[in-house]
């Protein structure tokens, strides 16, 4: 009747490789279902806004602190080299380029992978293993729409905002450091900083953080939604969500940078 269940078919090559490809197939189906359900109205506004609050607002403090410190440290560490050549005036634009092109997208993404990815993974996994997701199913509620679609979209929307915020705070951190040493005014600093950043830089950063946000959302929801093995599975899902998200983020970073550099 249905061949996917039960009745153990012989593994194609070996069990391991077989299940590796099965995993890919499942993730592919997961993403396909995600798109199908995401475009079908009505949108779950309540849960979406709740998730934006969980993802965005609750990560704000962490993003602020790390952004500020990155700005200060990067400025401090670049100053000796620049002053050797007598070009400390380039500091603002150097920092701005580094922050917008590379640091902010990565830092915001890694923080969210650690903080939000693990919590989504653990939350959905614990709902799965205690049959709360099945309970939604039997109450005629579509748990995929309610739990997964809202979380992935919230993550995809919030990460770019967090990223730009992180970049801004990074530049502020840099400004405080520059102001203390070189007495630049805020207007002069930002004038200098942002003249060097092109539209393409913003586009690259935006693309990166949209892709990273989507990745974190999909990976952690997938891990949570397919958790097994009781409470052991909850810890596993949280852990694997973070590890795989971070790994994929670095791979995507390389690919996106290559694509945009070829346009440049």
């Amino acid at each position: 009747m249905n061949s996917t269940n039960g009745k153990s078919e012989k593994p194609l090559i070996t069990g391991k490789i077989d299940s590796f490809f099965l995993h890919f197939y499942n993730i592919f189906n997961f993403i396909r279902r995600l798109f199908r359900e995401a475009v079908r109205p009505p949108i779950e506004w309540g849960e979406f806004i709740n998730q934006c609050y969980q993802v965005g607002y609750k990560s704000l403090a962490l993003v602020t602190v790390t952004g500020f410190i990155t700005g200060v440290v990067f400025t401090e560490q670049s100053r000796p080299t620049l002053s050797e050549f007598g070009v400390t005036a380039w500091l603002p634009s150097l920092v701005a380029i580094a922050v917008v092109r590379a640091l902010a997208p990565l830092i915001a993404a890694l923080i969210c992978a650690g903080k939000v990815g693990s919590s989504i993974g653990a939350e959905l996994a614990s709902m799965k293993v205690t049959e709360q997701i099945d309970a939604m199913e039997v109450s005629a509620i579509n748990p995929f729409r309610y739990l997964v679609v809202t979380r992935v979209i919230a993550m995809t929307v919030c990460l770019p905002i967090l990223m730009f915020y992180n970049a801004l705070i990074g530049c502020m951190g840099s400004y405080f450091d520059v102001h203390a040493h070189e007495q630049t005014s805020l207007v002069a600093f930002f004038d200098n900083a942002f003249t060097q950043i092109t539209f393409l830089d913003y586009t690259t950063a935006l693309t990166k953080s949209i892709v990273y946000g989507f990745t974190i959302g999909v990976v952690s929801c997938y891990q949570g939604f397919h958790a097994t093995q009781g409470t052991l599975g909850v810890g596993k899902a949280a852990n694997i969500s973070v590890v795989i998200s971070m790994f994929l983020i670095f791979i995507e970073e390389v690919i996106i940078v290559h694509i945009f550099n070829s346009i440049r």
Binding site: T130, Q132, A140
Partner: peptide
């Protein structure tokens, strides 16, 4: 899902939303 509206299922583990 329409059919499930007409069938109630109470779980062995209760499965309340924590």
């Amino acid at each position: 899902r329409a059919l499930r509206l007409k069938v109630g299922f109470s779980f062995q583990s209760s499965a309340l939303y924590d």
